[in-house]
Amino acid sequence: MASAEEIARAADRKDIRDRWLLSAPALIIILVAATGPLLIVLVYSFLTSAAYGGVEWKFSPEAWVSVFLERDIFDDTLSLADANITIFWRSIKLALMTTVVTLALGFPTAYFMATRSEKTRDLWLFLITIPFWTNLLIRTFAVLQIIRNEGIINTLLMKAGIISAPIQILFTDTAILIGMAYVYLPLMVLPIYASMEKLDFRLVEAGYDLYASRWQVLRRIILPLVKPGVIAGSILVFIPAIGAYVTPSILGGGKNMMISNFIELQFGQAHNWPLGSALAITVMVIVMIALLVYVRNTGAASGERRG
């Protein structure tokens, strides 16, 4: 006769098997749809480019060499590829700035929303999600209409006599920053709001009661408690921002490329699929490193308090 222990163990085994079976569809999709293409990209990056797009099945490290370096066409010496590095730097810089700007705008917004009455809170939440209903392309063109030389901003400023000639915003890094901050703002607001909503505002009262000024209450009580939301929001904004394609291609005007535009160029006009693949993987690595550093730093900071 089976002992109780054996029966329990058999039940455990069945449990584990059922769990695998239930998650199998999701695992297959992740494997095929996410890992598969990534592997193809990785393989392509080590192949030789064909003359009119596509790849030749011949190993070559050339693509990886030319991610950060360029080969002189006369004597084959290698030097740093300034153009590529500029594009990488611009992408990282703009993604970071977008994160900072959306945080600066999103935090007060989330605080405002979380401090409304329950009924009005839902309304504000609804309003925040409205931009998601509109196509990204159309929203980006809307921003373009506002900031172009004949747009609302310049027209108003000129009519008011503050400036005499239009300010060139369009086709600059500033234009890309404005566009991205606008597009990604909800992604910052929502996670911060989610943790702010859970915040016990009696703790805020306790802070005031214990002689903390408004600024001290924000820094010492509210911020530490909504930090998970701030981290989630920053990650949610930073990752798509560094890989943004539509916004920089419309508002940057092709001159101020970000990585995605540069990668697209390799697969299109430049007919250099291996380089495109190598660049794509480089971006992925940069994002992963940035995330690791960020998570480790913020994790360490909260661990210190616990000690």
Binding site: D200, R202, L203, E205, A206, G207, D209, I221, P224, L225, S302, R305
Partner: peptide, 11 residues
């Protein structure tokens, strides 16, 4: 004040 819910800072 000593609050009904204590309102101690959890962090």
């Amino acid at each position: 004040t000593v609050f009904q819910s204590y309102a101690l800072f959890p962090h």
